[in-house]
């Protein structure tokens, strides 16, 4: 039940997390409540991203722009029959992510100890998991493109 609250943006979670947890304890969890929470999470992120700015540009608009550019690039490369190049790029990024994830994990283990190094409580631990996620994502992309 609690991990649903962790999906909300950090600022939102700090302000309403405990209250929402309290309400969830009283309502109990059902499929309907889970769907409602997922919509709530999307809504909270939409508000969060529309309020964050990078160099004066709204972050949600920047993300949409970057996504559109990515789609344009992929469509362009596919039409040029350069899927092999995309395959290689995906594999390189996947391997690089894996390498960085392992390096950060080792550094973290030296810094905070072996047992704590595997936990998600440290910033380096979170970063390592992030790179692992990137590795998984790009490796799946590579497999899809290769087939």
């Amino acid at each position: 039940m609690r991990w649903f609250i962790y999906l909300y943006p950090k600022i939102w979670r700090k302000r309403y997390g405990k209250e929402l947890e309290q309400v969830l304890q009283q309502t109990g969890i059902s499929v309907k409540v889970m769907i409602d929470l997922l919509f709530g999470i999307l809504d909270a992120w939409q508000i969060e991203l529309s309020e964050r700015k990078i160099y004066g540009f709204r972050m949600d608009r920047l993300l949409v722009l970057i996504s559109l550019l990515n789609v344009l690039l992929i469509v362009q490369l596919i039409s040029l029959r350069e899927v092999i190049m995309l395959e290689q790029i995906a594999l390189i990024i996947a391997m690089l992510s894996f390498f960085l994830a392992v390096c950060i994990l080792i550094v973290n283990m030296f810094k905070v100890g072996i047992a704590k190094g595997f936990s998600l409580n440290t910033r380096l631990g979170k970063l390592s998991i992030g790179f692992m996620g990137s590795y998984a994502l790009f490796f799946v992309s590579f497999l899809v493109l290769a087939n």
């Binding site: 309403y16 919509f39 709530g40 909270a44 508000i47």
Partner: peptide, 13 residues
């Protein structure tokens, strides 16, 4: 039946 997600979304706004 207002769901907890909808309730706190509206409260935050």
């Amino acid at each position: 039946n207002l769901g907890p997600g909808t309730l706190y979304g509206a409260i935050s706004r």
